[in-house]
């Protein structure tokens, strides 16, 4: 298990043994390598273009300027639109919030049905779902385009929300099924004896006990949907592009002079939401990926 840290007994070894030097030395070097890109992103975004052209990407800014951030947020151009990443940010918010709520609502009920109300054939669907999680999205992209076009949702926000619900379903259903299966079955049986039905038990007994798993699911989905690029680029139109797609268009656009500081500010802005969630959630994030991955 991913154990909480903290002292686990004293170590009688000397602090500066060669063993410790090797362990901590390696860890510090690797940690340094992992932190460099974040550091470079931040310092680049705080420099002016003249300083970037002259200097070294690793050197701290001589003169801190927040102009690149303002420009990235409010006036950077993608194609003809020059209202910056703010458009993509709000699109991503409008996409992420309903997608997270809808996908979790659907998957939690699915997981509950699979855990407590097994019906004939349920496991066949579940197996297909889990196997489906490994199928490359590319093979299902076009049929979904046709379906969405036929029901008039292609290119709309609602269409993309449906897509996120579909592709979030395998992992979330697995997560909830495993969680509900692990709850004491006596509770469920007692409620059944008292005559409670499917929805009653779910809303009044299961939900109040499953706050932690909902938090894990929210973390998983917010970062996953916020970071999505493929579905955004396939199922939305330029004016509803999510932030990742718009970021890529800003940075990799071929016209104009490259403004590396603005690009890096835009990159940090896009990474900020998942990073904040990651640093704020700590262990829960780890638990989410471990629960999703190890049992997958």
């Amino acid at each position: 298990m991913l154990d909480p840290s903290g002292p686990r007994g004293s170590r009688p070894r000397p602090v500066l043994s060669s063993r410790n030097i090797i362990i901590y030395g390696t860890l510090f070097v690797v940690a340094f390598y992992y932190l460099i890109p974040l550091y470079v992103m931040v310092v680049t975004s705080l420099k002016g273009m003249p300083e970037i052209r002259m200097g070294n990407i690793f050197s701290p800014p001589m003169e801190i300027t927040f102009e690149p951030w303002v420009k990235a947020w409010a006036t950077a151009c993608t194609g003809l639109n020059c209202d910056g990443l703010s458009r993509g940010f709000w699109n991503s918010v409008i996409i992420t919030v309903p997608s997270v709520i809808a996908s979790i609502a659907i998957a939690s009920v699915n997981g509950y049905a699979l855990a407590n109300w097994k019906f004939k054939g349920a496991n066949i669907f579940f197996t297909i779902l889990i196997v489906g999680a490994f199928i490359p999205y590319q093979i299902m992209i076009y049929p979904i385009v046709i379906i969405l076009r036929d029901i008039g949702l292609y290119g709309s926000l609602f269409g993309l929300i449906i897509v996120h619900c579909i592709f979030g379903m395998p992992i979330l259903t697995l997560l909830f099924r495993n969680y509900f299966s692990a709850l004491p079955q006596e509770l469920f049986k007692a409620a059944r004896v008292d005559g409670a039905g499917f929805w009653q038990i779910f809303l009044r007994i299961m939900l109040p006990m499953s706050l932690p798993i909902f938090v894990v699911a929210v973390i998983l989905q917010v970062t996953g949907i916020w970071n999505d690029f493929l579905f955004g680029v396939v199922y939305t139109r330029p004016d509803t592009y999510p932030m990742t797609v718009q970021l890529n268009n800003i940075v990799n656009s071929v016209q104009g002079v490259k403004e590396y500081n603005v690009n890096m500010a835009a990159t940090i802005l896009t990474g900020l939401v998942p990073l904040i969630i990651y640093f704020a959630s700590g262990k829960l994030f780890v638990r989410g990926i471990a629960a999703g991955a190890v049992k997958g």
Partner: peptide, 17 residues
Amino acid sequence: YPFALSFIVTGLVWQWL
């Protein structure tokens, strides 16, 4: 922490580095 970032962000940072 890099795992929390999208591939787009990752790609752009390393493009710069």
